[in-house]
């Protein structure tokens, strides 16, 4: 604990760095996934292609991807952009699938009746399909958020500072306390992000019952009352 008090400034700075590296991939992945997910849902052929590309990208291990980024982007190896872009790729790869499935799961009757009462394609997407896909999108976003936060620390290996620095430094000094503090900081960041997402969901989708991310599918009757509106 004494180490923490002595190095509070460093830990706080690394935490801020960690947050700064995590936020852009989560937001970028989400925003870019919407049009792609929409496309995948609209055109069956593009769905197969997009989801396959997403699957392949998602299968690529993180450290090798970080190492490859300078070659692809023409950046320097220590540039934080490498980590941000690589993590955005993962976020996007995952969210495209989530978005496409979330939109596909919107009740076709609701879509048909919205069209029938005079929504244009554009307004129907924004006012009907997207809100109804919201709960599933949010669940996907929460997964992206947690995994992005925990991946950022790998970037420390290629010299991009985050709480991951504490792992490497603690390893060199054979000092477990520092590593433990790094782990706790990383988990806390992930937790705060998750809380923010859940609260944002409540504000943006007050109509949606609280969708616990993995509800018991056995209780079919309760299921219907939970999401079936």
């Amino acid at each position: 604990m004494t180490w923490l008090w002595a190095n509070l400034g460093l830990v706080w700075q690394l935490t801020l760095d960690h947050v700064a590296l995590s936020v852009p991939p989560i937001i970028l992945g989400f925003l870019l996934a919407l049009p792609l997910g929409w496309l995948a849902n609209r055109h069956q052929p593009s769905r197969g292609v997009l989801l396959s590309i997403g699957g392949v990208l998602y299968a690529i291990p993180s450290l090798p991807l970080f190492v490859m980024m300078p070659l692809i982007l023409g950046t320097k190896i220590l540039d934080p952009i490498n980590v941000v872009v690589a993590l955005s790729i993962y976020a996007l790869a995952l969210m495209v699938r989530v978005a496409s499935d979330a939109l596909a799961a919107v009740d076709t009757d609701v879509i048909a009746s919205s069209t029938a009462i005079g929504y244009s394609d554009w307004s129907r997407f924004w006012r009907v399909e997207l809100p109804l896909a919201g709960p599933v999108l949010l669940a996907g976003l929460r997964v992206v958020s947690v995994s992005t936060v925990s991946l950022v620390s790998v970037g420390a290996i290629v010299g991009v500072d985050s709480v991951g620095f504490l792992f490497l430094n603690g390893f060199q000094r054979a000092f477990p306390e520092e590593i433990l503090i790094g782990i706790i900081a990383s988990v806390l960041i992930a937790f705060v992000f998750d809380v923010v997402l859940v609260l944002a969901g409540r504000v943006l989708m007050p109509w949606a019952p609280v969708l616990r991310s993995r509800e018991h599918p056995r209780g079919l009757m309760t299921e219907k009352t939970v999401i079936g509106q």
């Binding site: 690529i60 291990p61 993180s62 450290l63 991807l65 993962y90 995952l94 699938r97 989530v98 499935d101 979330a102 596909a104 799961a105 919107v106 009740d107 076709t108 709960p135 599933v136 669940a139 996907g140 929460r142 997964v143 947690v146 995994s147 925990s150 991946l151 790998v154 991310s213 993995r214 509800e215 599918p217 079919l220 299921e223 219907k224 939970v226 999401i227 079936g228």
Partner: peptide, 22 residues
């Protein structure tokens, strides 16, 4: 399958067994 169970299935695929780290 009903719509909600489809959504549920979609959720499951993503949320439940996605690996966190590569």
């Amino acid at each position: 399958k009903t719509t909600h169970s489809h959504a549920r299935a979609a959720l499951f695929r993503h949320a439940s067994f996605i690996r966190n780290e590569r």
